[in-house]
Nucleic acid binder design. Structure first.
Lengths: 201, 201
DNA sequence: TATCGTCGAATTGTGGAACAATCTACCACG
DNA sequence: CGTGGTAGATTGTTCCACAATTCGACGATA
C-alpha cells in the first residue's frame, strides 16, 4: 500500500484502524510497522503513532549521500577484486531489449536491478542491508513523485556505459562516472519534487 | 547486558524468561528485541527466537567494509566542504590528556567519539544512522573480545595525525590515512578473535 | 547397537481484551 | 477572541489464551 501510492504522504496509520483493515491484531501491526520504520518508510513519534514518511528535498539529497557512500565503495571493491557481475550484465541486456514505449515501472526495475547487482557482488551482507534501506526509500520517493524519466534508450545507453567502465577496471574513472550518474538521478528527483511542491502550493 | 559481556555470545534469549527477569511483558520484550535485531546485536530465526549475535572473522571484515564505505565518504564530504569538526578536536584533546595507565574503556570511548564526530559533521541523518549500527556491532565485538589495544599515547598520536590531515584538507591523503587506520583496527580485532578461538578450541 | 520415527513438553507467533498515560479536539468561560 | 478544561480517541503496555513449530526424550525396528 505504501509503495502503491494508495496512501497519502504523511498520512497517519492508526493502529486499531489498520489492524482491523488488514485482519491482524494490533500487536502484529505494531511489529510490522517497526520493520517498516527501520526501512525508513514510516516514522514514529512517541505517543503519536506512525506516519508515512514525507520526503523533502533535503531527504533526497541525504538518501543519495548514503547511496553514493555505499555504491562508490562497492565499485571500488568489485573493481579491485576484478569480480564479474553477471546480474548487472543481465540488467543491461534487459535495457537493450527495451521498446521505446516501455513502461516506467520496467525501466525503474531494471535500474534498481543493475545497481543492486553491483552492491551484491561485493558479497558484503551489511552493505547490502544498508543499501536495501536506501532502495526502499527511493521506491517510496518514486511512488510519491513519479518523476520524469529520460527515454528508455538513453537510460539504457547510460547503464551500458557504466557497465563497460566497470569491466574496463579503471577505478577512478568508474567512480567519476558513477558519481555523475547518481548526481543526475538525485537532481532528477529533486526537480520532480520541486515541481510537485509548486503544484500543491 | 549485551555490551556488558554478561551474556554468552550466541546464547538464546527466551521470551518468557527474559520478560520476567526484566519485569516487562512478553510483547514489550519482543518489541525491544526487534530494535536490537536492527542494530545487529541480536539475530532472529523464525520459530527459534533471538540469539546474541556471534561475530566471526568474516563479520569483522564485513563490519569494516561498511564502516570504511561510510567513513571514507564522510571525510570526502567534510574535507570537500571545509567543515570544522570541533568534537573531533575535543576527542584528540582527550587523547592528549590521557595517562599511560588510562583504562581500556576510556581509550575506546575517545576512539568512538572521534570517528562519530566526523560522521556527524557531514550532517547526514542517514549516514549517521547507518554508522550507529556499525558502532554497536563494534561495541559488541569489543565486549566479546577485549582485544589488545596499543599504548594510549600511540593511539593518541595516530588520531592526532588523522585530525591534522583532515584539517590540512588533501582528500586523497586523508583517505589513504583513514584506510590504513581502519585496516589496522580491523586486523587488530581479527587477531584478537583468532587468539580467542585458539583458546576455546 | 545404531538409526529412525513418534510423542510430548517447551517455545514462538499471533489474537483478544483491558487499562493507564498521553494526545487531540471541542466547548464553556472570562 | 483567547484560555483553560474536559471528554474522547489513541498509544504503550500488561495479562491471558491458543495454534504452530521446534526440540528432546523415548522407544521401536533393523
Amino acid at each position: 500500500m505504501i509503495l502503491d501510492g494508495s496512501l497519502e504522504p504523511g498520512s497517519r496509520l492508526r493502529e486499531t484502524d489498520f489492524s482491523k483493515r488488514l485482519g491482524i491484531a494490533r500487536h502484529t501491526f505494531r511489529a510490522a510497522a517497526q520493520i517498516l520504520i527501520n526501512e525508513g518508510l514510516l516514522r514514529r513519534s512517541p505517543n503519536r503513532g506512525v506516519q508515512l514518511t514525507v520526503l523533502g528535498a533535503a531527504d533526497i539529497v541525504d538518501i543519495f549521500r548514503l547511496r553514493e557512500a555505499l555504491e562508490i565503495e562497492a565499485i571500488r571493491l568489485v573493481v579491485g577484486a576484478g569480480t564479474e557481475i553477471p546480474d548487472a550484465e543481465l540488467a543491461v541486456e534487459g535495457f537493450n531489449a527495451l521498446e521505446d514505449d516501455a513502461s516506467w515501472r520496467t525501466v525503474v526495475d531494471l535500474d534498481m536491478d543493475f545497481h543492486r547487482a553491483i552492491i551484491d557482488a561485493t558479497g558484503s551482507e551489511r552493505i547490502s542491508r544498508a543499501y536495501a534501506g536506501v532502495q526502499s526509500e527511493i521506491l517510496l520517493c518514486m511512488a510519491q513523485l513519479r518523476p520524469h524519466y529520460d527515454r528508455p534508450d538513453e537510460v539504457a545507453a547510460e547503464h551500458r556505459e557504466l557497465l563497460e567502465a566497470l569491466q574496463a577496471g579503471n577505478p577512478d574513472k568508474v567512480e567519476a562516472l558513477f558519481r555523475r550518474h547518481l548526481g543526475e538521478a538525485s537532481e532528477n528527483l529533486t526537480n520532480a519534487l520541486q515541481a510537485r511542491e509548486e503544484v500543491t502550493a
